[in-house]
Design a protein around this nucleic acid. Structure first.
Length: 595
RNA sequence: GGCGGCGUAGCUCAGUCGGUAGAGCAAACGGCUCAUAAUCGUUGGGUCACAGGUUCAAGUCCUGUCGCCGCCA
C-alpha cells in the first residue's frame, strides 16, 4: 500500500556524558544504546535524523578531579573525551555529531542564550550567601567545601552531598568545614552577586504545554512527575552563574570573571551541536529544520535522574528563548543494576563499557542490553544472564538459524539462493508471520518500546526455527529436490527480513549476514573521527555517514539464483566460566579499592 | 519530609481499554540430525508487597501501610 512518504525531521538528543570518567554499561543501557537503535530505525524508514551529543566539560567536579591529578581541567577533558569517542565507535553508536562543550561554537551559542534570556526578562540578578576562603581569597563552590556530615558523621562529606549516606547538603550544614583547595578553615559567609533563571515566570506557560493533550506517548513515570511538578506552580529561580574560573564567561560587562553554571550550558549543547553539525555539512542554517519546523520531532534520551532537566528546565529555557521546538518526547530510562547492586564509581561497583568491549563483541552487548532495557523499572543485569542470552538466544536461536540455513543452501544448492516452486500453506504461514512481525516491530519502535521490539524480532527467529523443523528440508532433499528448494528459499527470505529487523539492534552482524546472502554494499553506515579547527581552538568529533545504506525498512524479496558467499557463524558462544570470572573481577576490584 | 515511579512463578522480567494470570531460564521426557550438542514438541510451578474499598468482575481503578529507586527540600 503505497502511501505518500513525507520525510520527517527527527532530532535525537542524547544526554551529554560528564567528562570526568569512563562510561559504564548502565549509561549505555540507559542513555546511549536506545537512541542509536531509534536513530538507525528512523534512518532506515527514510526519515531525516539528526542525532547529537557531546562531552559535558564544565563544572566543579572536573576542576576537583583535575586538581587531584595535578593537571588542568582541559587535560581532564582531553583524557576522557577521546575515550567516549572510541567507545561509541566500537559499539556503533551512530552520532551524526558527538562533540563537546568547550568549543567556541558552544560558548557562543550559550552566551547568546544567556543574553536572550536576559533581554527577554527571564534572568534576574540576586545576592547569594556563599562560603569564602580567606586564605585562597576565593568563593568556594559547594564541592570545594569539605567537612563532617551532620547526619552520618562521615568526615569527608562535600558541601553539596555526602558520599557516604547520599544526603544532599548545604555547605553550611557541615561540621568543621574546610577549604578543599588549601585545607584551611578560615571560611566566612559572604554575599556574592549571581544571575538566576526565572523559572517562576515560566511555570505557567509550561503548565499549558504539559497539558496540551499531545503527551499521550510519554512514559507514565516521566509524564506524571512532570505534570505534578508543573501544576504545583512552585518553580523558583535557579542560579545559573558561579564564582569559578572553569567554564563559559558571563557575557555581561563587569561580570566576565563569573562563569555560567554547568547545568545551564550543558543542555544548550543540543542546539549548539546541531549548529556545529550544520557547519560541518556546509549548510549553516540546516539546524533550523529540526528546531524550528513545527512538524519536526525531538526525542531526548536520558536516564531517570535527568528527567527534571529535560521536562522542566530545558523546556523553560527553550520557551524563554523563543522560536525553538520543545521536546516531543523524553523516553527516560530507569537504572540498570548489576548483580543486585547499583552501579557506582565511588562505591567501586562498575562494569566499564570500554573495558568489556575489549573482551566481547559489540553485538552481544547490544543484544543483551536491549533485551534488558530498563524502560519500565530498574533492571538487574547479571553476568550469568549475559552469557545465557548470548549463548541461548543470540547464538542458538538467531545465529544458528542463519548458519544452518545458509550452510544448507551453500552446500546443497550450488552456492545460490534456490528457486522455489509454488508455496504451500506452511510456507505462506511463515512468510505471513514475518509480515506481521514487521508491522508490530515498526509500531513498537515508533513508540520507543525497544525492549518489546527486540523480543518480537527474536520471536520471529524462533518461528523460523520451528518452520524448519516442521519442513525438514534435509529429508525433503532426498526425495523431492524442489520441495527442499522451496523450504530453503522461504527460510532465506525470512532470514533476509530478520536481517533488516535486527539491523537497528545488531548492525555489525546484520552487515555480515547481508554479505553472506550475496548482497553488496554497506548497510550499517560509517563512523569516523575528525579534528575540527575553530578560529583558535580545535576539538575531536565523532561523525556518521549513512547516506549509502543499501537497504530500507521494508519487506525484502530475495532474488532467486543470487550467488551466496561462504557463510560463517554470526556469533560465538561464550564459556560458562565467563560469568564467574567477570563477577570475581568485580568483587576483586571492590575489595581492592576499599582497602 | 514532599512529589513521581516501581513491588507479578525458584530466577530475570512482560501484562494495552477492568473481563478465567504470561514469556524466557532452570527441571523432566520425547522427536530430529541441516546447524556452533545447536533445534523442535510436551509437562510442573502464583496469597500479583500488605490491608481495606469501588465493581457483576481488580495484577489493572481508589485509600492507607511497608519496601526499593529517582527528583526536590
Amino acid at each position: 500500500m503505497p502511501q505518500e512518504k513525507t520525510k520527517q525531521k527527527i532530532l535525537i538528543a542524547v544526554a551529554w556524558p560528564y567528562c570526568n570518567g569512563d562510561l559504564h554499561i548502565g549509561h549505555i543501557a540507559g542513555a546511549y544504546l536506545p537512541p542509536d537503535i531509534f536513530a538507525r530505525y528512523q534512518r532506515l524508514k527514510g526519515n531525516d535524523v539528526l542525532m547529537v551529543s557531546g562531552s559535558d566539560t564544565h563544572g566543579t567536579p572536573i576542576t576537583v578531579h583535575a586538581k587531584e591529578l595535578g593537571i588542568s581541567p582541559r587535560e581532564v577533558v582531553d583524557r576522557y573525551h577521546p575515550r567516549f569517542i572510541e567507545l561509541f565507535q566500537k559499539l556503533g553508536i551512530s552520532f551524526d555529531l558527538f562533540t563537546e562543550t568547550d568549543t567556541e561554537n558552544h560558548w557562543a551559542v550559550t552566551q547568546d542564550f544567556f543574553l536572550t534570556h536576559w533581554e527577554n526578562g527571564y534572568i534576574y540578578k540576586g545576592e547569594m550567601q556563599q562560603l569564602f576562603c580567606l586564605d585562597c581569597q576565593k568563593f568556594l563552590a559547594d564541592r570545594y567545601v569539605e567537612g563532617t556530615c551532620p547526619y552520618c558523621g562521615y568526615p569527608h562529606a562535600r558541601g553539596d552531598q555526602c558520599d557516604n549516606c547520599g544526603r544532599t547538603l548545604d555547605p553550611t550544614d557541615l561540621i568543621d568545614p574546610h577549604c578543599k583547595i588549601c585545607g584551611g578553615t578560615n571560611l566566612e559567609l559572604r554575599s556574592t552577586e549571581h544571575f538566576f533563571l526565572d523559572l517562576g515566570k515560566l511555570n505557567e506557560p509550561l503548565k499549558t504545554w504539559i497539558n496540551d493533550g499531545k503527551k499521550d506517548h510519554w512514559r507514565p513515570s516521566v509524564f506524571n512527575f512532570t505534570k505534578t511538578q508543573l501544576e504545583g506552580g512552585e518553580l523558583r529561580g535557579r542560579p545559573i552563574t558561579r564564582d569559578i574560573s572553569w567554564g563559559i564567561p558571563v557575557p555581561l560587562p563587569g561580570y566576565e570573571h563569573k562563569r555560567i553554571y554547568v547545568w545551564y550550558d550543558a543542555v544548550i549543547g543540543y542546539l549548539a551541536a546541531s549548529k556545529e553539525w550544520s557547519q560541518h555539512i556546509g549548510r549553516p542554517e540546516a539546524w533550523r529544520e529540526w528546531w524550528q519546523d513545527e512538524k519536526a520531532r525531538s526525542y531526548y534520551f536520558i536516564g531517570k535522574d535527568n528527567i527534571p532537566f529535560h521536562t522542566i528546565i530545558w523546556p523553560a529555557m527553550l520557551y524563554g528563548y523563543g522560536g525553538l521546538n520543545l521536546p516531543y518526547d523524553v523516553p527516560a530510562n530507569e537504572y540498570l543494576n548489576v548483580e543486585g547492586k547499583q552501579l557506582s564509581k565511588s562505591r567501586h561497583w562498575v562494569v566499564e563499557a570500554l573495558d568489556v568491549l575489549g573482551r566481547y563483541d559489540p553485538d552481544p552487548w547490544r543484544y543483551v542490553l536491549a533485551a534488558n532495557f530498563p524502560e519500565t523499572q530498574d533492571i538487574d543485569f547479571t553476568w550469568e544472564e549475559f552469557v545465557r542470552r548470548n549463548n541461548a538466544e543470540l547464538v542458538a536461536t538467531w545465529g544458528n538459524l542463519a548458519n544452518r540455513v545458509l550452510s544448507f543452501a551453500y552446500k546443497r544448492f550450488d552456492g545460490q539462493v534456490p528457486t522455489p516452486r509454488a508455496f504451500d500453506q506452511r510456507d505462506k504461514a511463515i512468510l505471513a508471520q514475518s509480515e506481521e512481525v514487521f508491522e508490530r516491530v515498526s509500531q513498537l519502535l515508533d513508540s520507543v518500546k525497544l525492549r518489546n521490539a527486540i523480543t518480537e524480532v527474536m520471536g520471529l527467529a524462533h518461528e523460523a526455527n520451528r518452520y524448519l523443523n516442521d519442513k525438514e528440508p534435509w529429508k525433503q532433499i532426498k526425495v523431492d529436490q524442489e520441495a527442499a528448494a522451496t523450504t530453503i528459499y522461504t527460510c532465506l527470505q525470512v532470514i533476509d527480513r530478520l536481517k533488516v529487523l535486527f539491523l537497528p539492534f545488531l548492525p555489525f552482524s546484520s552487515q555480515k549476514l547481508h554479505e553472506y546472502l550475496g548482497y553488496d554494499g554497506d548497510i550499517m553506515g560509517r563512523q569516523y573521527v575528525e579534528e575540527y579547527m575553530e578560529t583558535k581552538r580545535k576539538h575531536l568529533v565523532l561523525r556518521y555517514d549513512g547516506s549509502n545504506i543499501a537497504v530500507r525498512w521494508e519487506l525484502t524479496t530475495l532474488p532467486a539464483g543470487q550467488p551466496l558467499r561462504k557463510p560463517a557463524p554470526l556469533f560465538s558462544k561464550l564459556e560458562a566460566s565467563v560469568a564467574a570470572e567477570e563477577t570475581a573481577r568485580m568483587i576483586a576490584r571492590l575489595t581492592q579499592e576499599a582497602a
